[in-house]
Amino acid sequence: MTAPLIGDAVRAPYDLLAWLIGLWSDALAAVGDAFGIGMLDYVFMHHAFLVGGLIAVMAPLVGTFLVHRQMALIGDALAHTAFAGVAVGLFVNSLLGTGISPYVTAVVVAMLAALAIELISEITDAYNDVSMAIVLSTGFALGAVLISLNTGGLAVGINQYLFGNLATVSRENAALLVVLFLVVSIVVTVTYKQLLYVTFDETAARVAGLNVPWYNRLMTTLTAMVVVGAMQIMGVILVAAMLVVPVAAAAQVARGFREALLASVVLAEIAVIVGITLSYRYEATAGGTIVLVAVAVYVGMVLAGKLQSRRDVVEESGAVTGGMDATAGGSAED
């Protein structure tokens, strides 16, 4: 994963990114020194925290729309095709002796698979989880076949993609992730209203003149980007959890959609920071640890949600019945 990924055309922006990532590294190192945090002595930990922090923003950002469209499985499907993408990259490299980063082929293959999922469901009218199951199986089968065709070097290298590895997050990988992060956040910010409308009420969105299939495709393409981004530390197998678990946790306590979006980002950040720290401390795999922390957070939120709704019932018992003819009353806004 060295030079060939970076062509001359992107040299200047890459240098800028690398410089910024360097700054981040220096800052974390300074924090580590000041507070005597040993794990911040290592550059790969700086990268892990950077990449983890970015994933914890963009995964829930996209995942919130997916989960509430009952499309939580799509992350899983795309993660498996991203695995095929990795296999393609490694296969081509070993065949032609090139040095393309497997992450680049993973991005490409996952985005193609994302569009395939949408296309299959549009053409066959099959419900979406059928098309997802097909794409998932195809992706994993393709990856497995490509690996078996070239056992030896290839099979050894594949583990880090399956299970993720903090130490594999090079500066170059971090730069790729920063780019993905920028693209995903900008696109979601610009199309937030449209995505929300389509998520909440597809028919009304069509009546309102939105191009629903187009936004569906956009959604899946963004998912593919997030999946590949998260693959570096989570590993293929656990990637989907990052899209779903923090979102499900936030949905337990949030009232509004924007609130749920922000809460899921905060919860994901907690899972990532605590997870990475624990995995460093106990030398456990980062992906699994992050997911377990996220699930613990989810369980906590379920309990908090139950308590909250019990409180709401008590406090609402009067308000809801009176709500219908509450026209005359003054503004109850905060």
Binding site: K193, L196, Y197, T199, D201, A208, G256, F257, A260
Partner: peptide, 22 residues
């Protein structure tokens, strides 16, 4: 109506989305 977290005000605000565009 989907079981998703969204407030009444947020739903009503959708009526303004076609006006606001991007």
């Amino acid at each position: 109506t989907k079981r998703m977290p969204i407030t009444v005000a947020e739903v009503v605000l959708m009526g303004r989305f076609p006006h606001a565009g991007f």
